[in-house]
Write a protein that binds this DNA or RNA. Structure first.
Lengths: 150, 150
DNA sequence: ATAACGTCGTCAAGTCACTTTACCCGCGTC
DNA sequence: GACGCGGGTAAAGTGACTTGACGACGTTAT
């Protein structure tokens, strides 16, 4: 432990959000590997991020994840080869494609939710049920106004 | 807006932490660019992350940011060339180096805190002072037990 | 004293997740 | 039927890393 010349000041909301978020992210990846999905990397979590890519067009997913459509397609190509999803033609419009999760893909989504559920349970235990419920509700409000302050 | 066959379930704590964190991260970078620090990229924020690298050894910073020391050194080299910091020999032990922020480096740290302060003020306005204070306190508890559950 | 050892910082090469640029292909419009 | 547009994709280039190796310094054992 080192004390600095100038005090760091109060903890910033940036660090306060970053630290738990990184914990969740690491637990997700470790949990997937532990459940046998050893061929998934951290980058693939971006494609699987809530609520999942099933039924979306690649461009929609790109907009949602704030990546270029090429970057998304690069990851989709890998995950298709690994058997997690398929890119089929949209029957209504031949210009579009639709992402369809395979059974394995759906299992991954469930696995992620299970892992996050574990983390939530641990935190609920540590913070107490009341505090944890309050935290969740505040985060819901925060992330809804952060996403679209309509 | 598309409704899916299977309901997405309640919003996961992962997404709830990720969305606001990404907002903060984007605001930090945009704020630095707006204040004239246009030569900093997203990766440099990892080096500057709370409470900042001043006085640390490269290895300590690597451990803190969970990067390899080579990755940290790569970024430190860039930021040294850009005039944000210097790597000097530790006077007590010639094996070590110490990171010293330059004046410009200290200005960046202050700029980041100012930007995050703006975001905090906005969120406090939207959530109300009481709710925001509660959110911060809960996040402090959460990220302290996430970091080291001693 | 000096030799062995353990880290720290760093150089070099390789890898991976992207970005940039460009193109083709359906569909709707003029 | 030519046109424009937007979506998906292929190819090359870039940046942020990882992996592997190594010399320098200080600490410990001989």
């Amino acid at each position: 432990m080192i004390t600095h010349a100038q005090p760091p000041g109060p903890p910033l909301i940036g660090a306060l959000l970053r630290v738990p978020w990184e914990v969740v992210r690491e637990r997700m990846l470790a949990g997937l590997h532990a459940r046998g999905f050893t061929d998934l990397h951290a980058a693939h979590l971006n494609v699987l991020q809530y609520p999942g890519p099933d039924g979306l067009r690649p461009s929609e997913l790109a907009a949602q994840t704030r990546m270029t459509k090429q970057a998304v397609n690069y990851l989709l190509g890998q995950m298709e080869r690994l058997g997690y999803l398929e890119r089929r033609d949209d029957p209504a419009d031949q210009r579009f494609k639709r992402i369809h999760l395979t059974r394995r893909g759906h299992r991954v989504i469930r696995a992620i939710r299970a892992v996050v559920g574990e983390v939530e349970a641990e935190w609920e235990q540590e913070l107490g049920p009341h505090s944890f419920a309050e935290l969740r509700e505040l985060l819901v409000r925060l992330s809804s106004l952060a996403a679209g302050p309509t």
